[in-house]
Design a protein around this nucleic acid. Structure first.
Lengths: 351, 351
DNA sequence: ATCGCTTCGTAAACCGCTTTATCGAGGGGG
DNA sequence: CCCCCTCGATAAAGCGGTTTACGAAGCGAT
């Protein structure tokens, strides 16, 4: 396996200077037909490709963006990554992938790569809530960062979020229209913007519909199976369980479901359910679960779009974009039963 | 925002030459305490980080690997990406992410990046089956490629696959032990190694158990919802449907399920089901679906491990690794019913 | 013949780091 | 006292592009 050809080799074979080739390739030099074809022949002969490191060093940019995510395996982030990669690739940008695993040190480290021009810009998602200011200031310092999905308070970069509050409202409205009067919201972390906003929208819509404040109960925790499971169990232990539950994420829903099934609680006969995200294959659940869907790929694409604007130097003012949200009606919402109580050991298929 | 400091700045402040700093940082120069602390102070003062492009140009390597996948959103590949990123990161390697979208041209393009030392090595997954030799020869030329999940015939690089055949056998065995005698395998593409091997293992185990050749029917197509759906419908239209179905992937299963549900076919009362991969949240299905599970993260980690060996220049011989497979028993396999026929409009919860 | 304007290029600096000699100073041995 | 070795560095040549600034032809006009 021999060395890849360098500019000099091509230049010699084409009988011109390296500069000529470089300028020709980058469009800063127009050449007559004869020279062009000699150059092209030489390039083809060596299968020449400019050394990217040399190019990047010289140009001072990498044509690469970083995608920083809490984790990659999670379908939500995976879809985000897919959309971002596709959008970036269309712009001729490479994507470096970094998982922080929710470690603050990692987040800061990847942010620092921006400074050394390792990457030209950063698409950043964090769901850590305990920032002592270090993260916010690192982001502020970095420029060319776009925040996705969750906020980092105290930063003024471009941010792309979904309309969490509208989502919460849609969920409440679905329940209210079906006649429910006792609602529960199972949130994620109380300090996380998305979790708070979804709850706020849910609560607001209920109140606007005339429900008393006590009619909607909120449980905060985290976006996890365990939190869903624990809350479901607490709900079952309670004497007067709700007839409608809004899960703040598919993860929470996934925790809920087996508990209900094990106790013979039927969906939607005993309890109506709506979840947020719509990233799990909810169509295939039994019953299919209604969901508030956010377009993750829009988020990824939009993020890249803004990033590209930043890179190209268009001085786009930092702004907060709210992506629209949609209610996907499936079979998990029905009118409440008269007695408003779960029926243990019902005929609903126990596991 | 001022320019990041360069080696020269640090050197001047520390009162030594740039070479000294570089060598010190790379461990090729031992220095007395006093100098060390001056250097460290200077580095801290500037928050100096070596320019990665300059470093890579000089070193001729990028400390970065590429992960080339058909698509990223698919949970299977997402999990693979997560594992690979984690393993790479532990080795101090960055990961560039590329989705080919099953386009041959993309695959070749990303392979070409290896030549220009854009990345040091490639973790490659393809599920295209129509190679005319271009891909195989590009891979052969590339060196420092590890193939994951699916084979590219005619290449002799290191490959990491799961034990598809053993998986097929486990599926058959589960059915046979439950007493089934009419088995169906819904495969993916006939030309894809994984699909073929899973079918072969399934068939072999059935035959070894004494079943007639006609007792197991195979349907090839692709790893898709649509193929699952179509096959399910064909099966239902048939007069003598099987009592046990082995889906070659979760996607296929996901196509199957709604068709059965719509027709009132009960799982496992009417038909027993086993799927392959275990990447969908099968625990949460009703009933939970038994699966052949492959450890995707092992595959990612192992792939990176071999890649690192290649990069470090250890002359590891190219070999084919087969990762173990596991049967995850859930509730979707039961003894067949006497009559061996689906019961239309049964009491099984229709959608 | 000369001026001036295109056209078609080229020379050389530069991007920032790594590394291969090489070198001065100090210390120990003969 | 001199030689040689070790310690503590450094100068300078890459790595392979890009770009700025400049220049040699060629040619029409004066």
């Amino acid at each position: 396996m021999k060395q890849p050809a360098k500019l000099k080799d091509v230049a010699e074979r084409a009988g011109v200077s390296p500069a000529a080739i470089s300028r020709f390739l980058n469009g800063s030099l127009l050449l007559p037909e004869a020279t062009v074809s000699r150059i092209e022949a030489a390039i083809a002969h060596f299968d020449y490709r400019p050394n990217p490191h040399a190019r990047r060093l010289s140009l001072g940019r990498s044509d690469t963006i970083a995608l920083v995510l809490p984790e990659i395996g999670n379908p939500f982030f995976a879809e985000l990554a897919a959309a971002a990669e596709e959008a970036a690739s269309e712009q001729g940008l490479g994507v470096m992938l970094f998982a922080t695993g929710n470690r603050r040190a990692r987040e800061l480290e990847y942010l620092a790569r921006l400074g050394s021009s390792d990457v030209d810009a950063l698409l950043f998602v964090t769901n850590l809530t305990d920032d002592d200011g270090a993260l916010a200031s690192a982001i502020g310092r970095a420029a060319r960062v776009v925040l996705l999905d969750e906020d980092v308070p105290g930063t003024s970069v471009t941010k792309v979020f979904c309309d969490n509050e509208a989502g919460g409202r849609l969920a409440a409205r679905a329940f209210l229209e079906a006649g429910h009067r006792r609602l529960v919201y199972i949130g994620g972390p109380r300090d996380l913007m998305s979790s708070r906003e979804r709850g706020a929208g849910f609560r607001a819509a209920a109140r606007e519909a005339g429900l008393a404040e006590a009619a909607v109960t909120e449980f905060y925790g985290d976006y996890s199976l365990a939190h869903g499971r624990a809350t479901a169990e607490a709900l079952l232990a309670d004497g007067a369980p709700p007839t409608a539950i809004f899960a703040s994420s598919d993860q929470v829903l996934l925790g809920l479901l087996p508990v209900f099934r094990a106790h013979g609680v039927r969906v939607p006969a005993d309890v109506s359910l709506v979840t947020f995200d719509d990233v799990a294959p909810l169509d295939f659940f039994d019953p299919p679960i209604s969901a508030i869907r956010q377009s993750i790929s829009d988020m990824g694409r939009t993020g890249v779009e803004r990033l590209v604007a930043l890179i190209r130097g268009e001085n786009t003012p930092a702004e907060i974009l709210r992506l629209p949200i949609e209610f996907v009606a499936r079979a998990s919402v029905a009118p409440p039963r008269g007695d408003g109580k779960f029926q243990e050991n019902s005929t609903w298929r126990p596991r």
